[in-house]
Amino acid sequence: MTALIMKDLYAIKGQMKSAIYLLLFFMVLAFFFDMGPIVVMFAVLFGSLQVMTSFAFDEMSKWDKYGLTLPVSRRKIIASKYVLSLLLTIGSAVSLTPIILLFNLFFRSFSTDELFSMLCVISAAALLMLSVSIPIFLKFGTQKGRFFLFAVIFIPVFFTSFISENVARFSISLPSVQTLKLLAYGAPFFMLLPLMLSYLLSIKIYANKEF
């Protein structure tokens, strides 16, 4: 499985380099305009987007047809994509935290406490997005899959923003800040369940796929 993860990392290496430069540029820009949270979101989603890029590269070269002739089971090929997802999401959150903290020393956009809860919530969102997108990409490919993904992401985002804008009208009582913080810290762990379900679904889809 290490070999398959290496294959993906080698494939996205070039793209990651240019994306890191772009990210650093956005960071400076965002801190100047006091938009720190957007930087955190960028940083974490940046990692998980690379998983999708690896699917696109596989598809372009028709890698699966060849990869499945190697002494590696279909299950391991799928497992490697999920391990890559966790590595890139957690990896980008962890490796970019010191840089964000450093920027924050100068610009003071948010407190450290806020930063960590934000990192947790966004990592959880990234994991949820991957949980949904990986089976979709496996089933429909990255081209068609993108349209499904738009729908899957847009609908919950739309409802969430609709509800949050109408909290008063629906007389919804929000939980306390303390509870929200706890929920935020726990969010990445809660997302392990959808990730596991997604993994099982992907194995099923891939087992029946023909190349």
Partner: peptide, 29 residues
């Protein structure tokens, strides 16, 4: 598959990889 060698009409390897990368991958496969 440990004893099979396969060649298709195309290489089917992501185009960003080099022969050095492939050696690193295949020795683990």
């Amino acid at each position: 598959r440990e004893d099979l060698g396969i060649v298709f009409d195309e290489l089917h390897i992501p185009e960003q990889l080099t022969a050095i990368d492939l050696d690193g991958i295949y020795k683990r496969v």
